[in-house]
Simulated scan of single mutants.
Amino acid sequence: MTLFLLLAGAALAGCGGPAERVAEAPWGASMKRSVAPPFPLPALTGRVVDNADLLIADQEAQLSAALATTERLTRHQFVVVTLPSLGGRSIEEVGLALGNGWGIGRKDYNDGVLLIVAPNERKVRIEVGCGLEAALTNSEAQAIIDQRILPLFRKGRMAAGIFRGSAAIIREIDEPGVTP
């Protein structure tokens, strides 16, 4: 199978650097649209938005329950999104638009996380709000993609890669001292 291209990072609006010029406002309202997106976004239908149909209903429910438990325990919002297409945009641009447009994470803490999978473009990204950058750094996000997600994706095991990557992200953001 062709290798999955990857991008990982936490260059986010409001965190400093060039991302501030891309996005109109930092993410962090509640789970609702907080900023008019530069292009149409998929609907935020829950903690798992599987528009690329990579998960069966039971898997989606199981993952959604794990994300809900994580949010209840840590207060950090984590959403998994799969997209059939990036619409000619970079995965970074799509990630920022989703984080900002959906308002992932609490407004005053900017503590949201997105796992974005675009199988047709063979791209995956972990988008991290500024408030969680200490708990989930760029290098940790890259390691999760390289060591947990991509090996399974290369074997055609997309759901397993999403689950393993999500579990690794949850472990990172669930560390003691991370919740403000």
Score class of each variant (00 low, 15 high):
T2G: 08
L3C: 03
L3Q: 10
F4L: 13
L7D: 12
A8D: 08
A10H: 08
A11K: 00
A11T: 04
A13V: 13
G14F: 01
G14M: 04
G14A: 02
C15V: 02
G16R: 00
G17F: 06
P18H: 00
P18G: 15
A19N: 07
E20W: 05
R21F: 03
P26K: 06
G28L: 13
S30D: 15
K32A: 12
A36Q: 14
P37D: 01
P40K: 14
L41D: 08
P42D: 07
T45P: 03
V49S: 03
D50T: 07
L55N: 09
L55M: 11
L55S: 10
I56K: 12
I56E: 13
I56T: 06
I56N: 15
A57W: 07
D58K: 14
A61E: 08
L63N: 10
S64P: 08
S64E: 15
A66L: 14
A66Y: 06
L67Q: 12
T69K: 15
R72F: 06
T74K: 07
T74M: 13
R75S: 09
H76P: 08
F78V: 15
V79K: 10
V79M: 09
V80F: 15
V80Q: 05
V81H: 03
V81G: 11
T82E: 07
P84I: 02
P84M: 03
P84H: 10
G88Y: 04
R89S: 01
I91S: 01
E92R: 10
E92T: 05
V94G: 03
V94F: 07
G95R: 10
G95Y: 06
L96P: 08
N100E: 15
G103P: 03
I104M: 00
R106S: 01
R106K: 15
K107H: 11
N110P: 00
D111R: 04
G112N: 07
L115K: 05
I116N: 09
V117Q: 02
A118M: 06
P119T: 10
E121P: 02
R122T: 07
K123H: 12
R125H: 10
R125P: 00
E127L: 03
G129C: 12
G131Q: 02
E133P: 02
L136Y: 08
T137P: 07
N138M: 04
E140Y: 04
A141V: 04
A143E: 14
I144C: 08
D146Y: 04
D146A: 09
I149M: 15
I149P: 09
F153Y: 14
R154C: 03
M158L: 15
A159N: 14
G161Q: 10
I162Y: 10
F163D: 09
R164W: 04
G165D: 07
S166H: 02
S166C: 07
A167L: 01
A167C: 01
A168R: 05
I169T: 07
I170H: 05
R171I: 00
E172A: 14
I173Y: 04
I173D: 03
I173K: 08
D174Y: 01
D174W: 07
G177D: 01
G177I: 00
V178W: 01
P180K: 01
